[in-house]
C-alpha cells in the first residue's frame, strides 16, 4: 500500500536519540493553534506558500522556481521510505535510526504499521512522535516495533485542551496510562510550552506529575514555543496564531523543581537541567 508523506528529513537531531531520518506523514486529527508543521495537517497534497520567497512574477501556473510555492505531499510505499532511511544507516550508530512523525502518524494506521514493520525487518531503530489520541488497539499493534515513544501531553486541563487543539485529552492520558507498562523500551513525554496557554507552573506541574508517575518514563521534556510554523502558509494555517516565546529561565526553574519533586529526568529542548 501507499501512504501520503509530507517530507523525509535526514540528519534529524531533535526527533529522538542519535542521528535520525524523520518521516513526516500527512494528516492530523488535532488543530493546535501553535502547530509547527501546518503543511502536515491535511492528508492530501497541498501547496505551501513562503511569502518571503515570492517575487510576484505571475507565472505560478508554469511552475514556481523561487521556492515560494512548494508542493507538499508525495505517495510512497513503505519499502521506498526505508530505502531512503537506509541511505543513512551508517550514521545511526548505537542509538539513531528512523522516527515517524507528522502530522499525527497514527492517522494513517495501516501505513504506519507497514513502515515500522519494514524498519524492524531491516534492523532499523524506530522512534515515533505521536499524540496517542487514536484508538488504543492501533498503538498496541505498534508495540513490538517501536524502540522509542515520544508522546505529547500539550495541556492537562481537558476543556482547555479541547479549546486549543480541537480534541479532548481524555483518551490521550488514558492510552498513555494503559500502555505505559508495556513500553519497555522507553517513553519520552513532551510538552510544547506556549506562553499564555500552558506556560504557568501549575499547568505544567500537573503534566509533570502525570509523567513522573509513569513506570517506563525515560524523561520529561519541555519544548519552548517557536513561531516556525507561521512562515509556512497553507490552507490549514489560517487559524494559527502567533504566541509569545516563554521565558527560558522561568522554565529552567520549573524543570529543576519537577525533576526534584517527581524524581525524574527533565530536559528543555534536549538539554538536561
Amino acid at each position: 500500500m501507499k501512504g501520503m508523506v509530507a517530507d523525509i528529513q535526514r540528519t534529524s537531531v531533535h526527533d529522538g536519540p542519535g542521528l535520525r531520518t524523520t518521516v513526516f506523514l500527512k494528516g492530523c486529527n488535532m488543530r493546535c493553534a501553535w502547530c509547527h508543521n501546518p503543511e502536515t495537517l491535511q492528508s492530501k497534497q497541498e501547496i505551501i506558500y513562503y511569502a518571503e520567497k515570492c517575487i510576484h512574477c505571475g507565472k505560478c501556473e508554469e511552475g514556481c522556481y523561487t521556492g515560494a510555492r512548494v508542493l507538499c505531499g508525495k505517495e510512497y510505499r513503505a519499502e521506498e521510505i526505508l530505502d531512503i532511511v537506509e541511505e543513512d544507516r551508517v550514521y545511526y550508530g548505537k542509538s539513531g535510526g528512523m522516527t515517524v512523525s507528522g502530522g499525527e502518524p497514527s492517522a494513517q494506521p495501516e501505513f504506519l504499521l507497514e513502515i515500522v514493520k519494514e524498519a524492524k525487518k531491516r534492523d532499523i531503530n524506530v522512534g515515533i512522535e505521536t499524540n496517542f489520541s487514536m484508538d488504543l488497539d492501533i498503538y498496541q499493534e505498534l508495540l513490538p516495533y517501536i524502540d522509542c515513544w515520544m508522546v505529547d501531553i500539550k495541556i492537562y486541563d481537558e476543556e482547555k485542551h479541547q479549546r486549543y487543539t480541537g480534541i479532548s485529552n481524555k483518551k490521550i492520558l488514558s492510552n498513555i496510562r494503559k500502555l505505559d507498562p508495556y513500553l519497555k523500551c522507553g517513553l519520552i513525554i513532551r510538552t510544547p510550552v506556549i506562553e499564555g496557554v500552558n506556560s504557568e507552573k501549575e499547568e505544567l506541574k500537573k503534566i509533570a506529575g502525570f509523567a513522573g508517575s509513569l513506570k517506563n518514563l525515560w524523561y520529561y521534556e519541555l519544548l519552548p514555543y517557536h513561531p516556525l510554523g507561521l512562515s509556512k502558509q497553507t490552507e490549514s494555517s489560517k487559524d494559527m496564531k502567533r504566541f509569545e516565546t516563554p521565558n527560558k529561565e522561568k522554565l529552567k526553574k520549573y524543570a529543576e523543581e519537577f525533576g526534584r519533586i517527581y524524581q525524574m529526568k527533565v530536559k528543555i529542548s534536549n538539554i538536561s537541567v
Binding site: 540528519t11 537531531v13 536519540p17 542519535g18 542521528l19 543513512d88 551508517v90 550514521y91 545511526y92 550508530g93 542509538s95 539513531g96 530536559k267 529542548s269 534536549n270 538539554i271 538536561s272
Partner: peptide
C-alpha cells in the same frame, strides 16, 4: 548548540565514523 544538547557529541561521533566507514 548541537554540542550542548544531550547526545550532541555522540551524534557528531556517529557522523564522523559514518563518513569514514563510507
Amino acid at each position: 548548540g548541537i554540542g550542548m544538547e544531550d547526545g550532541g557529541v555522540e551524534r557528531i561521533m556517529d557522523l564522523i565514523r559514518g563518513h569514514f566507514e563510507k
